[in-house]
Amino acid sequence: MTEPVDTTPSRWASGVTGIVFPVLVVLAIITAIWYAVCVPMNIHGAVQSAERAGVVVIPEDAKTRREMGGVALALQNTGEISDVWSQDRPRLPAPHQVAVELWKTTVLKKVTSKRSLIYHGWITLSATLLGFAFGTGLGILLAIGIVHSRVMDMSVMPWAIISQTIPIIALAPMIIVVLYSIGVQGIIPKAVISAYLSFFPVVVGMVKGLRSPDAMQLDLLRTYSASKAQGFWKLRLPASMPYLFTSLKIGIAASLVGAIVGELPTGAVSGLGARLLAGSYYGQTVQIWSALFAAAILAACLVAILGVIERVTLKRMGMA
């Protein structure tokens, strides 16, 4: 008999390959679908430019082509399919076009350039962070009030919920106009909209977190004749930390949406929202999509940073 030899890779390695492979497969599938969808979306444009270049296309009548479905047109003009991924103004830009645009407007542009996504990203990020700070602070204060006062619970909570049922796209222009009329403009109105979106998850999470200690925990403090303040600092606040971080992650994503929405109605000249708007004015779909991706990447980074802070904090508290 020989000892069985452990040929399995270490848990870490198998864990990583076990995750990386499926993730890559999903990514590949999404990309493939995207490339495929480009065909029916862009074939009209590709056929039209081929016709202008003198190529014989089927059917020859432009009006008939316009009324045709993308798939049918592509099947009749297979020679033009390769052009759908390289048009200047496609209806749906291909993934590599967006990637190239992202590369050109971040790495290859000076950050001070008006066409740099880093520049526009920073404009949006600064409003996001300011609004997030406002929103988090307001959310925590409201939650403390709600937990400690029945009157606040009954009076503030319903308004907080109602506030989130109004579409922000309807409210944002009003906030900006009202603030402009009293002389406030620039970063503040955008931050206000960010705060408006981000305070809510913080309130809900913190109320739940501050109320998470059970009756036994509260009775224990009563047997020590602890004051309300001691109960807050020693029990309620530390107990609420995991809830707070969950809320913050939702809140920061909402903040970013708020800042972008805040840039739309003003005809702003800078910020990711302005890039989106300008792109749609001039039919620059590649620009729209690269601004969208920049926003998504920014949001992912912000949530990831919060995730790291969460892990470090909870670990230091002995809670993770």
Binding site: M216, Q217, D219, L220, L221, T223, Y224, S225, A226, Q230, K234, L235, P238, A239, M241, M317, G318, M319
Partner: peptide, 25 residues
Amino acid sequence: GYVFQAAGLYPWRTIARNIKLPLEI
């Protein structure tokens, strides 16, 4: 001193700091 059915120790405090809780208060 009151002892409940569950230990009810604070997960974010070490054992020593849990015992200190009433003393701090």
